[in-house]
Amino acid sequence: MEKRVDWRQAPGPFAALLGPPLGWFLLFFAAPLAVVLAYSFGTNVGVADIAISGTFANYARALEPVYLAIFLKSFAIAGAATFVCLLLGFPVALAIAFAQPRVRTLLLVLVMLPFWTNLLIRTYALMTVLRDEGLVNGALGALGLPPLPLLYTNGAVILGLVYVHLPFTVLPIYASLDRLDRSLIEASLDLGASHLATVFRVVLPLARPGILAGLLLTFIPALGSYLTPDLMGGPDSQMIANVIERQFKRANDWPFGAALAFLLMYLTFLALAAQGLFRGRRAEP
């Protein structure tokens, strides 16, 4: 049964409902991005003016080895963080999904609480523990070991991204496990499978959509993250977002920054499309 009403039957209410959000979207989201797109084909003229010359020079420059390396590094760092999130997040989601109701609520709140906490505060807290005179190195020192340079490394960035994004991985996986028909797991046990075999042969394949969603929800923000590499990374751990920021705030090369921003956006869409494909193929019988 078609439940929607044709807009021509009620053009007034239709316009009143859709108008404001669509207007806001076009004016304050689509238009600014269109300007960025236009600038990405522009050249700097003088100090403050930009001519939209239709050049591809900015994109060509973005593909130079220096910047290509940064793109690759961003991919590697975000990928590593996502992988660690999955390794930690799946067992956590599994434990939460099948815990007693009271325990489940408690664990869910514990996972969600950091998400509600300010990102900057969390990053700063992690830095406090990792810095040279922080808790971890303090513990190492107490054991008579030399301090490790934990902060301002690529590892620190990965750890920071895991710290910030873990709830995004856990929640979709939890949601898909929670929807899972428990009798499927019981059937697997009943047919002679061990718990471990059941997890790999029944739970994991059936939780695939949730796992993919969790991976995407972690990978996309990680790929474009600015704050974590900025605060926790060393000079060697710049990610794309940091380079973009530099073009706008320090180097004052807006056209190049605009081109980089759009490349990052295309990469994001690519990741989304890849997930859609992956999921679509599995859904086919």
Binding site: F29, L33, V35, F248
Partner: peptide, 11 residues
């Protein structure tokens, strides 16, 4: 889904 940094520079 658009990365925050892209929205930031657009704004």
């Amino acid at each position: 889904v658009v990365p925050e940094i892209c929205m930031g520079v657009a704004m």
